[in-house]
Amino acid sequence: MIANKLQLIGQQALNSVSGFGRAGLMLFGAIVGKPNIRKGLPLLIKQLYVIGVLSLMIILVSGLFIGMVLALQGYTVLVKFGAEGMLGPLVSLSLLRELGPVVTALLFAGRAGSALTAEIGLMKATEQLSGMEMMAVDPLRRIIAPRFWAGVIAMPLLALIFNAVGILGGHLVGVEWLGVDAGSYWSAMQANVDLYQDVLNGVIKSMVFALIVIWIALHKGFDAIPTSEGISRATTQTVVTASLAVLGFDFVLTALMFGG
């Protein structure tokens, strides 16, 4: 009985290690080697469109609302201490350090990550990847690489847009509606937000998250069992695994950046 349980644990550990290995090999195969600018650039632009531009709407809308909610919630607390002048820093620091990168990554995993997994899983199921390989075209370079780079580029940009829109949303609620002084909203923000400490650390965070989410999404698609059930499971796994990984790494990165 105990032996069986142990075997099960061992089996799962081996599976996850080999899965990790396969994911590493996939990424290695995709991004190592001389890129072909002539062929690669149009593919990259196409994927930037699919991954970046098409995610813009959800990022804009959720950024605006999260900024507005932050201002509203923050105001009700700060006003008790007569510190509503600190609303600007509250909104901007929460967004720049935490919510911008994290929420963008979570939305990105749900919007673009799941789509990527399903797309690649379906390409595998319909033998498109095999077919490409038989045509002497490496699917890692042709399919995986442009999607990977597009994701790594697009997500920090989306996070920046998310932050900017969120801060404007905070302005909308805090200044226009609740009547915090516009001058103190912006100047307190400037006094407390540091370009390197806050803005750029946020960007670094979202780069790391981009790498994690896109890697998981591509690997889950590439490794999916090519049946409809397998693909639907891979898609779910992408969203779950990527979200958990983002939150976990967020703690580690926050501890490294702001903890010490």
Binding site: E127, G131, M132, M134, M135, A136
Partner: peptide
Amino acid sequence: LYQARKKMSMLFQSGALFT
């Protein structure tokens, strides 16, 4: 292998057209 594959091709059951 990739060189050799340029001299062969395969018609998959599903066609495997790029959708």
